[in-house]
Design a binder for these strands. Structure first.
Length: 424
RNA sequence: GUGACCAUAGCUCAAUAAGGUUAGAGCACCUGGUUGUGGCCCAGGAGGUUGUGGGUUCAAGUCCCACUGGUCACCCCA
């Protein structure tokens, strides 16, 4: 028997209402904010991600689905969207268009990780990117979109974890101070942090080991080391958020694992996805354009995992509308009645009336049970008697009533009361 | 990559404190109780080589080992 690959999952019909709801909200919210859809390939040259995401990051070092194709090209299943977006922006000369270019997409992302609650090797990401503008007002716009998105999905008290991670002007000085601080406490910190100190120093701030907490608490804060440019940018953003009443928590420990982030970084946390909290993570990546060989291009965006959103929605008891389903079942008794039922079902569907046809020549009782189970409103019953008279029994399962109607008026009778519609 | 836990019917679980005959139940499914009438109820039915492979034993779902898979957590992230 074949089984799903580790970390992959099937999205069964019963979960589709959530997915439909989230996708619909994505379409609405992006249209409202003026973001256009851009779809990029699911597979790119490996080099794009190695350069874009950065050597030394976990993604590049151990999480990419990379392989050589039949033409001996080194390719990789996309582990994130932003690098591909920047590639497309440069390749299609989108920088020639009025800036910013505001884009979004939704699609699968692949990372070879050990699965756990809220983490999969393939997950679906809603990505929003605004390229070409440095103005902190666009940082605000992107965050505002995220805020409205989650609020309208039904989440209560949506707020941001927010920080600035500086830029190449100021970050190095801060990192030196941070490393100096950690060297003073070298014996007290965990092994992971000893490793991080050289490879990815900002990450020590994110450590969860209890022994590291005092060292983190006494560590210098990057906010005190930002250059004028970064500080003013951050202050403007905070002001916009304040004025708009969007809640945030400045979290000095919030950092990113990817090299290209500058200045603004933010996340949205929600309850209900196990040890994971982030349902949205993003930031500014002004260095990425040049990194992959394009023009210097400011950009800000976020990614949001749909699986995590759905999981959190369920955990928090958020409800979504049901999907439309047929409201009529045509039951038949006997071979000749079936001969008439099959084209009747076809006809009704052509007139936009959703119909279920039972299969297998089962008893009327069984067909009615099915009708009840599938919660249709009406059952059309065609038997020998009815067939001979050119009529059908029309049973209303909700009102427990039944009437005898001419077969050729069924279409009109039903279409008057049953345009196909969503359940409840 | 590291660690912990888990694996019995489609699903959720049972199977006397440390082995003992044909592995049970609820839900779901099918059939019947009404020559052709749903929900509720009643009766019946189908559905398992107890994850795989070894081992211990007179005897293994139960004990031991390995493997596979899953879950959760770490690393890290959505």
């Amino acid at each position: 028997m074949y089984k799903r690959l580790t970390g992959m999952q099937d999205i069964l019909p019963e979960d589709q209402p959530y997915w439909r709801f989230v996708r619909k909200k994505i379409d609405q919210i992006t249209a409202l904010y003026g973001f256009e859809r851009l779809d990029v390939p699911i597979i790119e040259e490996t080099g794009l991600y190695v350069r874009g995401v950065g050597q030394g990051t976990d993604i590049v070092d151990k999480e990419m689905y990379s392989f050589q194709d039949k033409g001996k090209d080194n390719v990789t299943l996309r582990p994130e969207f932003t690098a591909g977006f920047m590639r497309s922006y440069v390749e299609n000369h989108l920088y020639k268009r009025p800036q910013p270019v505001k884009l979004f997409t939704i699609g699968p992302i692949f990372r070879y990780e050990r699965p756990q609650a809220g983490r999969f090797r393939q997950h679906t990401q809603f990505n929003v990117e605004a390229l070409g503008v440095e103005d902190p007002a666009i940082d605000f716009e992107v965050m505002s979109l995220a805020h409205q998105f989650f609020s309208e999905l039904g989440f209560q008290g949506v707020h941001f974890q927010l920080n600035s991670t500086g830029c190449p002007q100021c970050r190095p000085q801060y990192i030196e101070r941070l490393q100096a601080h950690y060297r003073l406490h070298y014996d007290e910190i965990c092994d992971d942090c000893k490793r991080r100190l050289d490879r990815s120093p900002l990450r020590v701030l994110d450590c969860k080991a209890s022994q590291c907490q005092p060292v983190i608490a006494s560590a210098p804060k990057i906010a005190d080391y930002l250059c004028d440019d970064c500080r003013l940018h951050f202050q403007s953003l905070l002001r916009y958020l304040d004025n708009a009443g969007l809640a945030y928590i400045v979290n000095h420990r919030l950092v990113r694992g990817l090299d290209y982030y500058r200045k603004t970084v933010f996340e949205v946390w929600v309850e209900g996805i196990g040890a994971q909290a982030a349902v949205c993570g993003g930031g500014r990546y002004d260095g990425l354009g040049q990194e992959i060989g394009g023009p210097p291009t400011p950009g800000i965006g976020f990614g949001s995992g749909i699986e995590r959103i759905v999981m959190a929605m369920k955990a928090q008891g958020l409800t979504v509308p049901g999907l439309p389903k047929p409201q009529v079942l045509v039951a038949y008794l006997g071979k000749e009645a079936k001969e008439r039922a099959v084209p009747l079902v076809q006809e009704l569907r052509w007139y936009n009336i959703g119909v279920i046809l039972p299969f297998g020549d089962r008893s009327l009782k069984s067909q009615l049970r099915q009708a009840n189970r599938e919660r249709v409103r009406y059952v059309v019953i065609i038997g020998e008697d009815e067939l001979a008279r050119g009529r059908a029994q029309l049973r209303d399962l909700q009102e427990h009533q039944q009437q005898d109607v001419p077969l050729d008026t069924l279409r009109q009778w039903l279409s008057e009361r049953l345009p196909i519609k969503a359940e409840k």
